[in-house]
């Protein structure tokens, strides 16, 4: 019986050997039955991706193209399967977006392609795939990551959607007029906002919950920025659309409330170090609509100021706000038809869509900038909680 000499760390080559018949068990334990809130909570971020890649490395190392193919195919299909089953759970989708991207980065970082090796240690270069070029599989995995990203946005939108109008428009914090709805409106979902009324705070807490979940899962910072930008776009678009459809929202005080809410959202971005991710800019139409509610709307000079201020609003949107505008009190008159004509004349040669409402379903195209990892594969140890005892470190 061979003496079990403990191998020193440097003897491992960062691969995991497994028998072909154990492949189904591998994807079952590592993908299909892994609970993001359970075992996965205290894993190192991206561990499933590293484990899958180390298995792939061994199949490549022994020059078994069939084993490489079947592992990649069952990995991809298992991820798709779990997302079909639990695709409405933000944690699950975020977890597998982070791991799919990490797997994709590993395929690049260890592809042997110079372009992806700039930040590698010499040790990491030794771990490059030796026999197979998986460029075509990288494209498939990138397509999968795009699908998962779109699903994540849908997930997040379903959670945020019911909060936006209440939190950004209806709930008033400035004049101290409490807009608490009767408790009958209590939401059933287990999400953050379980009180009767969604407030701006509910939105901010939910944004923070999304953000910390993605960080905990090891999602690429560049990807988190794109998700946050998309979240802010949805918040801005839904808020503006409701403003444009509701007379009761077009008042001087509502303009003030919106500007306050926007400043809180910007504060949140600053707090998370996300001021440059483009999220703030997506709120520009809403910001300008709020300003439009507060500026003077009488003279030619006022008209000129409005036209130069409202660059992110279409003419239809500007005219709509002016038509819906409700004076502060009986001393203030409604916006005159003549004034609105002046605005329309000034803006007639603008080439823009006649659209009134923003497209709340628009998703910015996503990119996955290459993000190599400094993690040394040979040091990775597999927690027993993953039930992967049939894998052998090589």
């Amino acid at each position: 019986h061979p003496v079990n000499i403990p191998r020193r760390e440097k003897d491992f080559q960062g691969m995991l050997e497994y028998k072909k018949e154990d492949e189904l068990k591998l994807v079952k334990n590592l993908i299909l039955e892994l609970k993001p809130r359970g075992v996965a909570v205290n894993l190192i971020p991206g561990l499933p991706a590293y484990i899958l890649f180390m298995c792939l490395r061994h199949a490549d190392y022994v020059n078994d193209d069939q084993k490489v193919r079947t592992l990649l195919t069952s990995t991809i299909n298992s991820i798709k399967k779990i997302l079909k089953k639990r695709g409405d759970d933000f944690e699950t989708v975020s977890f597998w977006l982070a791991n799919t991207c990490r797997f994709l980065h590993c395929l690049k970082q260890y592809s042997g392609d110079e372009a992806f090796m700039k930040h590698n240690t010499s040790r990491q270069n030794e771990h490059s795939l030796s026999n197979f070029d998986l460029a075509e599989y990288r494209q498939v995995i990138s397509d999968l990551a795009i699908q998962i990203y779109q699903q994540l946005i849908k997930c997040m939108e379903n959670i945020l959607q019911p909060m936006i109008v209440s939190g950004m428009l209806e709930h008033e914090t400035i004049q101290g007029v409490s807009g608490v709805k009767p408790t009958g409106l209590r939401k059933r979902t287990s999400s953050i906002a379980d009180e009767g009324t969604y407030t701006l705070d509910s939105i901010l807490r939910q944004l923070s919950a999304f953000h910390s979940t993605m960080c905990q899962h090891g999602t690429d910072p560049e990807l988190i920025k794109q998700v946050v930008k998309q979240q802010f776009y949805i918040i801005g678009a839904v808020t503006l659309n409701n403003l444009l459809l509701r007379k009761d929202m077009c008042s001087w005080s509502k303009g003030m409330q919106i500007r306050y809410n926007v400043s809180q959202l910007e504060e949140w971005l600053r707090d998370k170090g996300l001021m440059t991710c483009g999220a703030k800019e997506t709120l520009e139409p809403l910001i300008q609509a709020a300003q439009l509610l507060q500026v003077k709307k009488k003279t030619d000079e006022d008209a000129e100021a409005i036209c130069s201020m409202c660059q992110a609003l279409t003419t239809a949107q500007i005219v709509k706000v002016l038509n819906l505008y409700t004076p502060v009190n009986e001393f203030e008159e409604r916006v005159s038809v003549a004034f609105i004509r002046t605005i329309q004349t000034r803006l007639r040669d603008r080439c823009e869509s006649p659209q009134l409402l923003m497209d709340t379903k628009m998703i910015y195209p996503v990119t996955f900038p290459f993000n190599p990892s400094s993690l040394a594969l040979e040091t990775i140890q597999i927690p027993s909680s993953l039930n992967l005892g049939f894998l052998t470190r090589v």
Binding site: R69, T73, L129, D133, L134, V140
Partner: peptide, 30 residues
């Protein structure tokens, strides 16, 4: 592997083709 020997490009099915392969496998083993 001598660095000079290029890696063999593995042709990959598309996501959709993979899904079809997966469905047919599942039908064979209910």
């Amino acid at each position: 592997r001598p660095p000079s020997r290029p890696r063999i490009l593995l042709k990959a099915p598309t996501l959709a083709e993979m899904e079809e392969m997966n469905i047919s496998e599942e039908e064979e083993s209910p």
